[in-house]
Every structure is written in structure tokens, then in C-alpha cells.
Nucleic acid binder design. Structure first.
Lengths: 201, 201
DNA sequence: TCCGGTTCTTAACAAATGTGAACGGATTTG
DNA sequence: CAAATCCGTTCACATTTGTTAAGAACCGGA
């Protein structure tokens, strides 16, 4: 595909972004960042395919270069999204990754997505080489944790309209990239109700 | 108080419970458990008082010997519970504890509560003495994480009645120990609605 | 013990959300 | 290209939940 070829040319820019993200967490040295990059593996996940299937054990954490992924669990045959990760984010199923238990939160691509992943084993090696990488893992855990806790409070506190407006306000870049029935499920309402809310403005 | 005196006599039984909980996580040796116990400090938290105030930095993790605690965040002046911890549980505000940031999830006692706490510094010492204690910390994180993720899906998926029935089914020991307006807030409904649901059976 | 506040319940009504069905546009499949 | 499927919208109607207000039950402090 032409599009993929063009994206591959963007690699320097994408590296820039990865490095920026890491600097935000802590002032990693160039050597440390090289250590990480030498262990990262490029992958391409086609829209609709999974980074992590339900019941699998998560063995990798990944940085998203381009694209969009959805974390979700399954209830009565319905996919309930609990989080979204997009370009510039790190993602992983933390519970499964750290405990080795089969995951009950799957991760699949909502768009063709380009990632760079690192295995748990390699991450362990980083920890040994430079304990600073523990900060990195902590950061990932905190981020997911914060997201979910916040969303929890929103679901408990706000009505459907307020939840949708808040979503629009805080994640405007997602509103047109996620199918509405997933947004509705994420917000805890039916697609028809979301449609009604959207109409009102 | 006579009650407190009696409880202090129960100490061997409470130790039993702490040890049982640890064995569930991993087969810690007697020496390792002694290491932990030597660092635990007894505390008593009166009903309504806080283990961790909003905005404080969490510096301790604690085991609950007797009593009941509520984790909550504040929205528009309303306390929104996101979790409960009771006797036999370990508790802590993981985000604040591991990052050193001020907490946005407070923890307060819903009953007079007896805990044994360990500081982050002492926990670090344990990690150095025996890396197995890292499993312990991971276990705590996973537990909280699992709870919140599950509750999230429930809030998004179930209606008020189903949420309450599920709560009754899964945490029957809590139903009569938590004020109903807190249960209502936890379930994302108004106290009057909860009252109506309870009346229907 | 009594008082004052808090919590819980109840009710009638208003508002929000769910349900089922139909339609049309977009996308995929053959 | 045609047929089939999926997705978003709309509507009418059912059901659930919120709101407001009042009183009863309960609890803690003086």
C-alpha cells in the first residue's frame, strides 16, 4: 500500500514523539533511550485485529506510532470499552502483564495501527540495567489507573448528556474516529440515546 | 472502652488472618513474615476519621484487622465512593503511594477501625531483603485495579436495579454496614431511587 | 433524657433513558 | 453492478430514574 510506504518515511518524526513521551516521565539519558529502542519491535495491526485477545496472557507493552486501539471487556456478548489508546500513547493490559493471568480486558485496533512493542522479559532486563525504568512502568500503571478511576466517577456522577459533553470536551480528537456505538457503550448508554443527545444541539 | 480491650485480646486471631492473606499471595516463609510484622505499626482510626485526606501524599499501606474503610473522590461537593476495604484486606492509595503525588482519592473510616500500617520506606527495605515482596505490592495493585475495572463495566452495562442486586449478591457483608446514601452514590443513583428499589421485593 | 440533626422512606410528578421498529446511506461482498 | 450487511438516525411509546417535598426513624451530643 502506498499509505504504508509513506508512513514508513515518517519514522524519524515518530521517534521524536516516543522520545518526547519518555522525557515527560523522567529525564532518561540518550544511552537509556537507546537501550529501550534496541529492544522495540515494529508491528502492524490491521483494523479489527487484536493486540491482545480475551483469555490470552499479555506478554508485551507497546508504544503506538499511528492509529487507535480500544481496551474492552465482554458482557452478555456486548463489548464494553473501558479505555482508548492512540498515537503517542503506551498501552498494555497491566493486570495480565504483571500477574501472568489470562486477560479479561482485550485490546483491538479501531484503525490500522502501527506499534513498537517490548516484551516483559526485555523490560526486566532494562530494570536490571537501569532501575530508572521502573519509573516508566509505574507511570504506565498510574496513567491507566487514573483514567479508569476518573471514568468511574463520571459514570456514577454524571447523566448521559454530561458524560457525552465531557467526552467531547476532553477527547475531541477521538469523537470522529470511534464508531458511535462504541462511544455509547463507553458512556454507558444505548446508541439511540447518544443519537438523540447529538441531535439536541 | 471495654470493646477495645476485648479486641486487643483477639490479637492472635488477627495475626492468623494476616498470615493467611499473605500465604494466599505467595508462600512467604516464617522469616519473611516476621520481617514484615516487625515493621507494622498498630493504629486506631475512629469512625469518620481519615486514613488519607484529599490532597495528602500517601506514605503508608495498611492491613485492616477490624473495621471498614471507604475510598472516595469528591465531585461537586459529593463524596463518590469507588471502593471499600474491610477486615482482612490490605488498602492504600496506590497512585499517590507510588508516585508521591497528592491523592485525589481519600480513604476514611465508616466504622471504628483497627489497622496495622507499613511505610513506603520500610516496604522498600523489604524489597531489598527479599524481592518476593514485590509480588505482594503487585498483588495489591492488581486487586484494586480489578475491582475498579469490574465496577466500571457494571456502571456502563447494568441498570440501577441490576447493580444493586449484584452488590447484594457479591458483598452481602457490606450491605448493612455502609450508609445507604453511600451505597447509592457507589452505584451511581440517588438515595431515593435506592430506597425505591429496596422496597420492591 | 431530650433535642437537633441526619438518614431513610414515601409519594406525585417531571425528566431522562430504554425499546422496538423503520428508513436510508454507506460499506462490503459476491 | 447488485445484494446484503452494518451503522446511524428518527419516532412513538414504555420504563426507569431524578426531583421535590414531607414525615418517620434513628443517632449522637448536651
Amino acid at each position: 500500500m502506498i499509505k504504508n510506504y509513506i508512513e514508513s518515511l515518517l519514522s524519524p518524526i515518530m521517534n521524536e514523539r516516543l522520545i518526547q513521551q519518555l522525557q515527560k516521565i523522567d529525564n532518561f539519558s540518550d544511552e537509556e533511550i537507546d537501550m529501550l529502542q534496541s529492544k522495540l519491535i515494529d508491528k502492524f495491526i490491521r483494523k479489527g485485529d487484536h493486540f491482545l485477545q480475551l483469555g490470552q496472557v499479555s506478554r508485551h507493552v507497546a508504544f503506538i506510532d499511528t492509529g487507535l486501539m480500544m481496551h474492552y471487556s465482554l458482557h452478555d456478548g456486548v463489548e464494553i470499552p473501558c479505555n482508548f489508546s492512540l498515537e503517542g500513547d503506551w498501552m498494555g493490559s497491566l493486570k495480565s502483564f504483571t500477574t501472568g493471568s489470562p486477560t479479561d480486558v482485550a485490546i483491538k485496533a479501531l484503525e490500522d495501527t502501527r506499534i513498537r512493542e517490548i516484551s516483559g522479559d526485555h523490560l526486566q532486563q532494562l530494570f536490571l540495567l537501569s532501575p530508572r525504568w521502573l519509573l516508566f512502568k509505574n507511570h504506565l500503571v498510574q496513567l491507566v489507573f487514573f483514567n479508569i478511576t476518573q471514568h468511574n466517577a463520571d459514570l456514577a456522577m454524571l447523566d448521559a448528556k454530561a458524560r457525552y459533553y465531557k467526552f467531547m470536551r476532553e477527547k475531541p480528537e477521538l469523537i470522529n474516529r470511534i464508531p458511535q456505538y462504541y462511544i455509547a457503550a463507553y458512556l454507558g448508554i444505548k446508541p439511540q440515546s447518544l443519537s438523540r443527545i447529538r441531535k439536541e444541539r
